[in-house]
Design a protein around this nucleic acid. Structure first.
Lengths: 117, 117
DNA sequence: GGTACTTGACAATGGTATTGATAGGGTTCT
DNA sequence: AGAACCCTATCAATACCATTGTCAAGTACC
Protein backbone atom coordinates (compact mmCIF):
# COMPACT_ATOMS: atom_id res chain seq x y z
CA UNK A 1 0.00 0.00 0.00
CA UNK A 2 1.98 2.87 -1.17
CA UNK A 3 0.66 6.32 -0.78
CA UNK A 4 0.11 8.44 -3.81
CA UNK A 5 1.97 11.31 -2.20
CA UNK A 6 5.11 10.46 -4.00
CA UNK A 7 6.41 8.81 -0.91
CA UNK A 8 9.06 6.37 -1.80
CA UNK A 9 7.97 4.36 1.22
CA UNK A 10 10.98 5.48 3.19
CA UNK A 11 10.38 8.99 4.54
CA UNK A 12 13.98 9.38 5.54
CA UNK A 13 15.30 8.71 2.09
CA UNK A 14 16.81 11.80 0.52
CA UNK A 15 15.34 12.35 -2.90
CA UNK A 16 14.48 15.96 -3.69
CA UNK A 17 16.96 18.56 -4.82
CA UNK A 18 16.43 22.02 -3.47
CA UNK A 19 14.36 23.39 -6.33
CA UNK A 20 11.91 20.50 -6.11
CA UNK A 21 11.77 20.60 -2.34
CA UNK A 22 11.14 24.33 -2.41
CA UNK A 23 8.24 23.86 -4.81
CA UNK A 24 6.75 21.09 -2.70
CA UNK A 25 6.64 23.25 0.40
CA UNK A 26 5.94 26.46 -1.51
CA UNK A 27 8.89 28.52 -0.40
CA UNK A 28 11.90 30.05 -2.07
CA UNK A 29 15.03 27.91 -2.31
CA UNK A 30 16.81 30.77 -0.58
CA UNK A 31 14.57 30.23 2.40
CA UNK A 32 15.56 26.59 2.68
CA UNK A 33 19.22 27.52 2.67
CA UNK A 34 18.53 30.02 5.39
CA UNK A 35 16.80 27.38 7.47
CA UNK A 36 19.82 25.18 7.07
CA UNK A 37 22.19 27.97 8.08
CA UNK A 38 20.04 28.55 11.14
CA UNK A 39 20.41 24.90 12.09
CA UNK A 40 16.74 24.09 11.69
CA UNK A 41 17.14 21.49 8.96
CA UNK A 42 19.99 19.30 7.88
CA UNK A 43 19.34 17.81 4.47
CA UNK A 44 21.56 15.07 3.13
CA UNK A 45 24.18 15.79 0.53
CA UNK A 46 25.33 13.84 -2.44
CA UNK A 47 28.99 13.02 -2.73
CA UNK A 48 29.28 16.12 -4.85
CA UNK A 49 27.69 18.34 -2.23
CA UNK A 50 24.20 18.64 -3.67
CA UNK A 51 21.41 18.94 -1.07
CA UNK A 52 18.84 16.16 -1.07
CA UNK A 53 15.68 16.49 1.00
CA UNK A 54 13.67 13.58 2.35
CA UNK A 55 9.98 13.46 3.19
CA UNK A 56 10.93 13.93 6.82
CA UNK A 57 12.85 17.02 5.87
CA UNK A 58 9.79 18.34 4.08
CA UNK A 59 7.58 17.65 7.07
CA UNK A 60 10.01 19.48 9.27
CA UNK A 61 10.00 22.41 6.90
CA UNK A 62 6.20 22.52 6.93
CA UNK A 63 6.44 22.61 10.70
CA UNK A 64 8.75 25.56 10.53
CA UNK A 65 6.38 27.30 8.16
CA UNK A 66 3.48 26.71 10.51
CA UNK A 67 5.39 28.11 13.45
CA UNK A 68 6.66 31.16 11.61
CA UNK A 69 3.68 32.03 9.44
CA UNK A 70 0.74 31.02 11.63
CA UNK A 71 2.14 31.45 15.12
CA UNK A 72 4.69 34.18 14.46
CA UNK A 73 7.62 32.42 16.11
CA UNK A 74 11.02 33.42 14.79
CA UNK A 75 13.82 31.07 13.84
CA UNK A 76 15.60 31.43 17.17
CA UNK A 77 12.45 30.35 18.97
CA UNK A 78 11.98 27.40 16.66
CA UNK A 79 15.53 26.32 17.22
CA UNK A 80 14.93 26.39 20.94
CA UNK A 81 11.75 24.37 20.56
CA UNK A 82 13.54 21.79 18.48
CA UNK A 83 16.38 21.55 20.97
CA UNK A 84 13.83 21.17 23.70
CA UNK A 85 12.02 18.43 21.86
CA UNK A 86 15.28 16.64 21.35
CA UNK A 87 16.23 16.92 25.00
CA UNK A 88 12.86 15.72 26.17
CA UNK A 89 12.69 13.03 23.55
CA UNK A 90 9.02 13.72 23.01
CA UNK A 91 6.75 15.02 20.34
CA UNK A 92 5.89 18.04 22.40
CA UNK A 93 5.33 20.05 19.28
CA UNK A 94 2.51 17.83 18.14
CA UNK A 95 0.53 18.86 21.16
CA UNK A 96 1.12 22.44 20.31
CA UNK A 97 -0.05 21.78 16.82
CA UNK A 98 -3.27 20.23 18.07
CA UNK A 99 -3.81 23.06 20.47
CA UNK A 100 -2.95 25.56 17.82
CA UNK A 101 -5.50 23.98 15.54
CA UNK A 102 -8.08 23.99 18.27
CA UNK A 103 -7.47 27.66 18.86
CA UNK A 104 -8.23 28.25 15.24
CA UNK A 105 -11.46 26.31 15.35
CA UNK A 106 -12.59 27.83 18.56
CA UNK A 107 -13.60 31.15 17.15
CA UNK A 108 -15.49 29.69 14.29
CA UNK A 109 -15.65 26.41 12.53
CA UNK A 110 -13.57 27.51 9.68
CA UNK A 111 -13.60 25.48 6.57
CA UNK A 112 -10.06 24.46 6.88
CA UNK A 113 -8.13 22.92 4.14
CA UNK A 114 -6.75 19.83 5.71
CA UNK A 115 -3.60 18.65 4.02
CA UNK A 116 -2.27 20.83 1.33
CA UNK A 117 0.59 20.30 -0.97
CA UNK B 1 2.51 37.18 62.42
CA UNK B 2 5.00 39.25 60.72
CA UNK B 3 7.32 37.98 58.15
CA UNK B 4 10.72 39.04 58.90
CA UNK B 5 12.09 41.93 57.09
CA UNK B 6 11.51 43.26 53.66
CA UNK B 7 13.53 41.07 51.34
CA UNK B 8 10.43 39.39 50.03
CA UNK B 9 9.95 36.22 51.94
CA UNK B 10 6.94 35.34 49.89
CA UNK B 11 7.95 35.46 46.23
CA UNK B 12 4.37 35.42 45.06
CA UNK B 13 3.41 38.44 47.06
CA UNK B 14 2.68 41.46 44.85
CA UNK B 15 4.64 44.44 46.06
CA UNK B 16 6.24 46.48 43.29
CA UNK B 17 4.44 49.04 41.20
CA UNK B 18 5.44 49.19 37.59
CA UNK B 19 8.05 51.91 37.85
CA UNK B 20 9.89 50.05 40.61
CA UNK B 21 9.57 46.72 38.85
CA UNK B 22 10.90 48.23 35.65
CA UNK B 23 13.93 49.61 37.44
CA UNK B 24 14.60 46.29 39.15
CA UNK B 25 14.73 44.43 35.86
CA UNK B 26 16.24 47.34 33.93
CA UNK B 27 13.60 47.77 31.26
CA UNK B 28 11.17 50.46 30.31
CA UNK B 29 7.74 50.37 31.96
CA UNK B 30 6.31 50.38 28.48
CA UNK B 31 8.02 47.09 27.87
CA UNK B 32 6.37 45.49 30.87
CA UNK B 33 2.97 46.60 29.65
CA UNK B 34 3.77 45.10 26.28
CA UNK B 35 4.72 41.83 27.92
CA UNK B 36 1.42 41.83 29.71
CA UNK B 37 -0.49 42.57 26.50
CA UNK B 38 1.34 39.69 24.87
CA UNK B 39 0.19 37.40 27.65
CA UNK B 40 3.66 36.71 28.95
CA UNK B 41 3.13 38.08 32.45
CA UNK B 42 0.08 38.68 34.55
CA UNK B 43 0.88 40.96 37.48
CA UNK B 44 -1.63 41.40 40.25
CA UNK B 45 -3.77 44.48 40.46
CA UNK B 46 -4.90 46.52 43.39
CA UNK B 47 -8.60 47.10 43.82
CA UNK B 48 -8.03 50.34 41.98
CA UNK B 49 -6.36 48.67 39.01
CA UNK B 50 -2.74 49.42 39.81
CA UNK B 51 -0.30 46.73 38.70
CA UNK B 52 1.69 45.07 41.45
CA UNK B 53 4.60 42.79 40.59
CA UNK B 54 5.84 39.98 42.79
CA UNK B 55 9.30 38.48 42.95
CA UNK B 56 8.02 35.65 40.81
CA UNK B 57 6.85 38.16 38.26
CA UNK B 58 10.30 39.72 38.24
CA UNK B 59 11.96 36.35 37.79
CA UNK B 60 9.65 35.62 34.91
CA UNK B 61 10.50 38.97 33.36
CA UNK B 62 14.20 38.26 33.68
CA UNK B 63 13.52 35.00 31.92
CA UNK B 64 11.85 36.81 29.10
CA UNK B 65 14.79 39.20 28.88
CA UNK B 66 17.21 36.31 28.72
CA UNK B 67 15.26 34.63 25.95
CA UNK B 68 14.81 37.78 23.90
CA UNK B 69 18.15 39.51 24.42
CA UNK B 70 20.55 36.59 24.70
CA UNK B 71 18.85 33.93 22.61
CA UNK B 72 16.95 36.14 20.19
CA UNK B 73 13.58 34.50 20.70
CA UNK B 74 10.61 36.74 19.99
CA UNK B 75 7.54 37.14 22.15
CA UNK B 76 5.48 34.68 20.14
CA UNK B 77 8.13 32.03 20.69
CA UNK B 78 8.31 32.77 24.39
CA UNK B 79 4.58 32.50 24.68
CA UNK B 80 4.72 29.11 23.05
CA UNK B 81 7.48 28.00 25.40
CA UNK B 82 5.50 29.13 28.42
CA UNK B 83 2.39 27.36 27.19
CA UNK B 84 4.47 24.30 26.64
CA UNK B 85 5.92 24.44 30.11
CA UNK B 86 2.47 24.79 31.54
CA UNK B 87 1.15 21.83 29.58
CA UNK B 88 4.05 19.65 30.56
CA UNK B 89 4.00 20.85 34.12
CA UNK B 90 7.75 20.92 34.26
CA UNK B 91 10.51 23.42 34.46
CA UNK B 92 11.71 22.60 31.01
CA UNK B 93 13.01 26.09 30.63
CA UNK B 94 15.42 25.68 33.47
CA UNK B 95 17.23 23.04 31.53
CA UNK B 96 17.49 25.39 28.63
CA UNK B 97 18.85 28.02 30.92
CA UNK B 98 21.47 25.69 32.28
CA UNK B 99 22.41 24.63 28.82
CA UNK B 100 22.45 28.19 27.70
CA UNK B 101 24.78 29.12 30.52
CA UNK B 102 26.90 26.07 29.95
CA UNK B 103 27.43 27.04 26.37
CA UNK B 104 30.25 29.23 27.51
CA UNK B 105 31.85 26.73 29.77
CA UNK B 106 31.30 23.42 28.06
CA UNK B 107 33.74 21.73 25.71
CA UNK B 108 35.03 20.17 28.90
CA UNK B 109 32.60 17.50 29.91
CA UNK B 110 32.06 15.44 26.84
CA UNK B 111 29.36 13.31 28.37
CA UNK B 112 26.18 15.28 28.52
CA UNK B 113 24.24 13.02 30.81
CA UNK B 114 22.83 15.20 33.50
CA UNK B 115 20.21 14.29 36.03
CA UNK B 116 17.13 13.31 34.12
CA UNK B 117 14.22 12.41 36.21
C1' DG C 1 -2.65 69.45 44.66
C1' DG C 2 1.13 67.11 43.04
C1' DT C 3 3.08 62.81 41.86
C1' DA C 4 2.53 58.36 39.88
C1' DC C 5 -0.43 55.24 38.04
C1' DT C 6 -4.02 53.80 34.09
C1' DT C 7 -5.05 53.04 28.82
C1' DG C 8 -4.34 54.38 24.07
C1' DA C 9 -2.03 56.26 20.32
C1' DC C 10 1.96 57.51 17.44
C1' DA C 11 6.75 57.18 16.15
C1' DA C 12 11.77 56.20 15.72
C1' DT C 13 15.36 52.75 15.78
C1' DG C 14 17.26 48.48 15.02
C1' DG C 15 16.62 43.66 13.95
C1' DT C 16 14.35 39.54 11.58
C1' DA C 17 12.06 36.88 7.74
C1' DT C 18 11.45 36.32 3.15
C1' DT C 19 12.16 36.90 -1.46
C1' DG C 20 15.04 38.34 -5.10
C1' DA C 21 19.08 39.25 -8.00
C1' DT C 22 23.87 38.57 -8.99
C1' DA C 23 28.60 36.51 -9.52
C1' DG C 24 31.92 32.75 -10.12
C1' DG C 25 32.29 28.04 -10.24
C1' DG C 26 30.94 22.92 -10.04
C1' DT C 27 27.56 18.94 -11.42
C1' DT C 28 24.19 16.40 -14.18
C1' DC C 29 22.11 15.09 -18.29
C1' DT C 30 21.25 15.02 -23.09
C1' DA D 1 29.73 20.60 -25.44
C1' DG D 2 25.90 22.99 -23.91
C1' DA D 3 21.85 23.70 -21.17
C1' DA D 4 20.04 23.54 -16.82
C1' DC D 5 20.68 22.98 -12.31
C1' DC D 6 23.43 22.99 -8.12
C1' DC D 7 27.03 25.30 -4.81
C1' DT D 8 28.61 29.54 -1.78
C1' DA D 9 28.54 34.34 -0.93
C1' DT D 10 26.92 38.96 -1.14
C1' DC D 11 23.76 42.89 -1.61
C1' DA D 12 19.14 44.61 -1.39
C1' DA D 13 14.12 45.53 -0.91
C1' DT D 14 9.99 44.71 1.66
C1' DA D 15 7.46 44.00 5.57
C1' DC D 16 6.94 43.05 10.16
C1' DC D 17 8.61 42.81 15.29
C1' DA D 18 10.84 44.52 19.75
C1' DT D 19 12.05 48.20 22.43
C1' DT D 20 12.12 52.67 23.90
C1' DG D 21 10.07 57.09 24.06
C1' DT D 22 6.52 60.58 24.32
C1' DC D 23 2.04 62.68 24.66
C1' DA D 24 -2.70 62.80 25.96
C1' DA D 25 -6.77 62.41 29.20
C1' DG D 26 -8.24 60.23 33.22
C1' DT D 27 -7.78 57.99 38.01
C1' DA D 28 -5.32 56.83 42.51
C1' DC D 29 -2.42 57.92 46.56
C1' DC D 30 -0.15 60.96 49.95
Amino acid sequence: MFRSSGAGIDPSRPVYVISVAAQLVAVHPRTLRIYEEAGLICPSRTETNIRLFSENDLRRILWIRHLTQDLGVNLAGIKLLFQLEERLGERILERLYEEGSKQGERERTAAHEGGRR
